[in-house]
Amino acid sequence: MSNLVPVLIDAFSVGGLYALTALGIGLIFSVMRLANFAHAEFVTVPAYALFVLSAQPTVMAISAAVLVAVVLSLATERAAFRPLRGIDPATMLIASFTVSMFLQRLLVFAFDSRLKPVDPLAFLSGSVPLFGVSVNLLKLTTVITCLVLLVALTLFLKYTRFGLEMRAAAEDFTMSRLLGVRANRVIATAFVLSALLAAVVAVLFSAQTGFVQPRFGLQIVIIAFVATVIGGLGNLLGAAVGGFLVGVVATLLQTYLPPDLRPFREAFLFLIVIVVLLFRPQGLFPARGLKERI
């Protein structure tokens, strides 16, 4: 038991970040069927904001990172995705690649591609005792933050007006417009929420890794996409569960694989993913009516 607690905290701190990232992707996908690869830069750019503002007080740096993420995401929606709305998902997917590449190159141009040190949550570097073992404070904070955000997002979707409109749009976009739901507002809400989640991931993940580079967000977004597919595209619960699942499995592999095989952890992870998709090609929680979009 005593050595299980740190493993679990590890697993859920990794899985939580994947879950938040998968949710950020899933929110936009469910509303407008856009698989947004630029989500990687929604994570990377605020992480660079943390780097630029590393001399500033923590609260200020984090607020700025959140603001940067929201502005970037709204600007992307307005400039790149809104003109393409209603066009087939493949075109929008390519557009999101383009945005992603563009922002990545922009970061290389502005900051070069070397690692930049960041430590936005330096005050969480210690450990606390939990169930008789000492647990890393940052990881514990990560787990708690993820859980709090998941609950907050659930409450938002369930009990607020915007949340109701988002769920309606996710289930049947055409019908929702007919019922008076404003398409622009719902999509903007999805992008803002997605950016908020991305900013939180940027803060927590950069605090864990200690550096940022132009492909910083990509490494986590790739895995989160896998998590979204595992959970069932277009289903937010599925995205969250898929994220946790992939994180937990990755950590357990890291912990319990024989040391010689650990470098191939990802290979084992993706093997499991393939096996899951063989048996559940629609993911664990398939969304309804993915194709129907008239």
Partner: peptide, 22 residues
Amino acid sequence: LYPGMTVAENVETALVGTGLGR
């Protein structure tokens, strides 16, 4: 109807669309 939402929520969505609060 929105299959995943409750009956009340289905109707609420239309009401919210007319500008009502939740």
